[in-house]
């Protein structure tokens, strides 16, 4: 499926249209040479900066290396350490919490907001810009803004809480609240893309079903959950996968900038842990093993989701 407005192509089997000028063998050779020349730069880049890093990362997992002295082959030591390292398990748990705490509200809120702005009321295109704006703030920009918002005394967040009589926590210095604080900030940054994707999904839902529902006298709220929500299910699935990956990657960036994994490791995700092992401890081998483990896990989860969907489809 696709949510883009340009026509979708099944890339795994997609073949170019035959334009085949009928000039025979010579032209075929010219075609082959030109095509090779055209794809070579991309392939070199791909091999050098995608394939080699992947294989190199795999190879390095079996070495101990500090970037200075020659690497030493250590066999499975790094892999064994991986499974016996309490910091790794803790970081893995933190990563899972980031994803769970982040993805569900992002998807639900994104869906509701998309339904809200999916209208042709005058002026809507201008108003929608505000919905999309958080998307263009980089992690660094967002962190500067939210660090100020979360300031225990001078920040707007605790100020707003004090209006309703709540004494707000010292967000980023608090073992309970640091993680939710980062999650809230990441939800803010992730909502625009979710809204955009849902808008695409909603526009493909036929108006006829609503007309039918209105005749039935279904309430707006019931209509939303019993008709709209199931109809955008493919979008929901896509958004969920994209956001799960997005929160794994995004939490790394913001916790590196704002809390450096603290306090007491409550915001130290697996990616950040690998980063620290690589660049603070300069233990490249173990860091490679950690990165690899994370990719394998992520891949396994994505495959699992696809499998579940296929099973669901088969039985429905």
């Amino acid at each position: 499926m696709t949510t883009s407005t340009t026509p979708a192509v099944d890339v795994t089997t997609g073949r170019p249209e035959k334009t085949a000028p009928s000039a025979g063998r010579r032209s075929k050779r010219v075609d082959a040479i030109t095509a090779t020349a055209f794809v070579t730069p991309a392939l070199i880049g791909f091999i050098l900066f995608v394939i080699i890093p992947a294989l190199g990362g795999l190879a390095l997992s079996f070495f101990q290396w500090d970037l200075f002295s020659p690497p030493q082959f250590v066999g499975l030591d790094n892999i064994v350490r991986l499974f016996t390292d309490p910091d790794m398990w803790h970081a893995l748990g933190v990563t899972a919490l980031f994803v769970i705490m982040g993805v569900i509200p992002t998807v639900v809120l994104g869906f509701l907001l998309a339904v809200l702005v999916n209208t042709k009321l005058p002026g809507i295109s201008v108003l929608r810009v505000f919905y999309f704006a958080p998307m263009i703030a980089s992690a660094a920009v967002a962190s500067v803004i939210w660090a100020a918002l979360y300031d225990p005394r001078f920040g707007l967040v605790n100020q707003a809480l004090s209006w309703v009589g709540i004494n707000g926590p010292a967000w980023l210095s608090d073992t309970t609240w640091a993680r939710p604080a980062l999650v809230i900030m990441m939800i803010w940054g992730a909502l625009p893309i979710v809204i955009i994707l849902y808008l695409g999904g909603l526009q493909r839902v036929s108006d006829d079903i609503y007309a039918a529902a209105s005749l039935d006298g279904a309430g707006a709220w019931r209509q939303l959950w019993s008709m709209t929500w199931p109809n955008v299910w493919p979008t929901t699935l896509l958004v969920t996968v994209l956001q799960a990956v997005g929160f794994v990657s995004g939490s790394f960036e913001v916790s590196l900038i704002m809390t450096n994994g603290g306090p007491l490791g409550t915001t130290q995700s697996l990616a950040l842990y690998a980063y620290k092992v690589a660049f603070s401890d300069r233990d490249i081998g173990y860091a490679s093993a950690l990165s690899l483990f994370q990719l394998v896990l992520l891949g396994a989860i994505v495959l699992l989701v696809r499998l579940l969907v296929r099973i669901r489809k088969a039985y429905s």
Partner: peptide, 29 residues
Amino acid sequence: KIPFKWTGVIMASLVIPMFIPGNLTLIPL
């Protein structure tokens, strides 16, 4: 647009790593 026998292979191999976020492959890169 150019008729070429490797098209399918190249396309397939390009797509696979596309969904891996860059932040997670930083160390080997």
